[in-house]
């Protein structure tokens, strides 16, 4: 599944910034290396990251589902349609350099997916908000990220209602491409207008609740940022800088 998975691992208990830093570090590492073997070491590191949080089983499925179609296309795009030399795998000629490229790009996808799905599974949204507030991140940014997630399901339901209602007024969803393009107006315009009509009401409601854009709230229970947390994040930073230094300076020199 995709989303927060409650747990008691060290990563669950860590400061919310730490899993996010590790995931970002893994993403940057995946692009820093370019040999197939090195990329898959990063994938293994991402899998280890997930396993240490006890969520490897949970994140593997969505990661595989998201990555598989792209892997298939990469295999076709680079493996089957790639350049010489080729090896014969049964009846098909498979490009060797293309296959290597497919491994690199497919590995990057896998590493990014595993890393961020793990971060998503280990960082509780409530604790992240507390941590950001404690760090003095303006209310506006925190509000934007969190509250949009509550608006989206409501707006999704509204899209369905609008699609239903306009069909009941005789709007056909199918037909020629031109007819379908023309149907966009009666479906998109009411969505945006009805949402804009709520802006002042929502702004007023937030104002009443004391949510001014520049105001700072006091975090109720700021998550502890331990020495270990800071050490891990520093290690991630050093590793990423070293990898890019080696990539650009080492490869050039």
């Amino acid at each position: 599944m995709i989303g927060y998975v409650p747990g008691a691992s060290a990563l669950h208990r860590a400061h919310p910034y730490t899993p996010l830093a590790i995931a970002t570090g893994l993403l940057l590492m995946a692009f820093a290396v370019s040999a197939p073997g090195a990329v898959w070491v990063v994938v293994a590191a991402a899998a280890l990251f997930a396993a240490s949080a006890g969520v490897l089983g949970t994140v593997l499925r969505p990661a595989a589902i998201l990555a598989l179609p792209t892997w298939v296309l990469l295999t076709i795009l680079h493996g089957l349609l790639g350049g010489a030399p080729h090896v014969m795998l049964g009846p098909v000629a498979f490009s060797v350099p293309g296959g290597e490229r497919a491994l690199v790009f497919g590995g990057r996808l896998a590493a990014i997916l595993l890393a961020f799905l793990t971060a998503l599974a280990t960082v509780s949204p409530a604790r992240l908000v507390e941590a950001m507030t404690a760090r003095g991140v303006p209310f506006g940014r925190v509000y934007l990220l969190v509250s949009t997630l509550t608006v989206v399901p409501r707006l999704r339901a509204r899209v369905r209602q609008i699609v239903d209602a306009q069909q009941c007024r005789g709007l056909r969803l199918g037909g020629s491409p031109l007819a379908r393009l023309r149907a966009l107006g009666p479906l998109v315009v009411p969505l945006v207008l009805s949402a804009l009509a709520e802006v002042d009401e929502q702004a007023l409601a937030l104002d009443v609740r004391g949510g001014t854009a520049r105001g700072r709230r006091t975090a109720l229970e700021p998550p502890e940022d331990s020495r270990a947390d800071r050490a891990v994040r520093l290690a991630v930073l050093v590793a990423v800088v070293a990898a890019y230094a080696w990539k650009f300076l080492g490869a050039g020199g």
């Binding site: 509000y143 934007l144 608006v151 989206v152 707006l155 899209v159 699609v163 949402a195 002042d200 104002d207």
Partner: peptide, 22 residues
């Protein structure tokens, strides 16, 4: 950004995320 601007931004984001359904 004013609070009202922020509400408009939130709305824009929400529209971005759901309009693909149409």
């Amino acid at each position: 950004m004013t609070l009202r601007d922020l509400v408009v931004v939130r709305l824009g984001v929400a529209v971005n995320l759901v309009v693909g359904q149409v």
